[in-house]
Amino acid sequence: MSGIFLEEQESTNKLRKADFKAALVLLCIAILILLETLKFPMTGSYGGVESQWYVSPALFPLILVSVLLASSALLLITAIKARGYRDVFNYKGWIGDFGQSINRDRWFVIIQLLLYIYIFIPSCDFFLCTANFLLAITFRFYLSNSALMLPLYATQTIAVAGLFGLRASLLDEFYFFSMEIVSDEKLIAWSDSLLAGMIAINCLTLLLFSKAEKIKIVYLLATCLLVPLILVFVFTFLLQVPMPVEYGSVSLFLQWLWYDKLGM
């Protein structure tokens, strides 16, 4: 009985420590919001609407911010009471202990998602980006063969560096990050070829060096290459949702096949 109690106590202690940090962050954010909100017009006409204090766009945010400040303060006080302020300067408490595999795995997934959404999707064909993303995730979590990981990291670094290199050499104006998708068809073609090459290398290393069972490899390849192809097909042709990069190589090929060859 007392063992369970101690365990519970332990996890609550941990939570209070985290709460202390969360409350600090929340307080900072709330204060920033407050500063921004105070710049809003409080009275005076705007957009053709006569304004009084009660029409001000700042009214609702001000109410919210004050409640948010109050509740964060409450959380902070609760945390302080439970002595949650210990270890606040320990970086491990903030980004996780890299000695534990669970934290390394978390960061791996997060980084793959970031690469997928912010770097690959805006510049390459959707099928290729997806295949690349799926290969990375399945290599690590389905096969768990560390021999495959090194080539994977290498190809991904090359792909990312290459994409930026291509942008720098083919575009008049280099950009690191854009709110819009690339529409330069030459750049898309080159980026696609690069990514396709990297995917091919990864598939090769998989076929040559993985010691997994044959059936596992078949499943993996089907998941990484076939499923995204089906998804792209269903979304473009049946649901009529154009892919993010509409002039990507695989999309163009499928369109040519579907419309011009099969005449659908």
Binding site: L113, Y116, I117, I121, T130, F133, L134, I137, T138, F141, Y142, Y219, L220, T223, V227, P228, L231, F235, V241
Partner: peptide
């Protein structure tokens, strides 16, 4: 379906 195969597909579906 094993989670390491199923969940990445779910992630792609979320994106789409």
């Amino acid at each position: 379906i094993p989670a390491p195969l199923f969940i990445p597909i779910v992630a792609v579906l979320c994106v789409l």
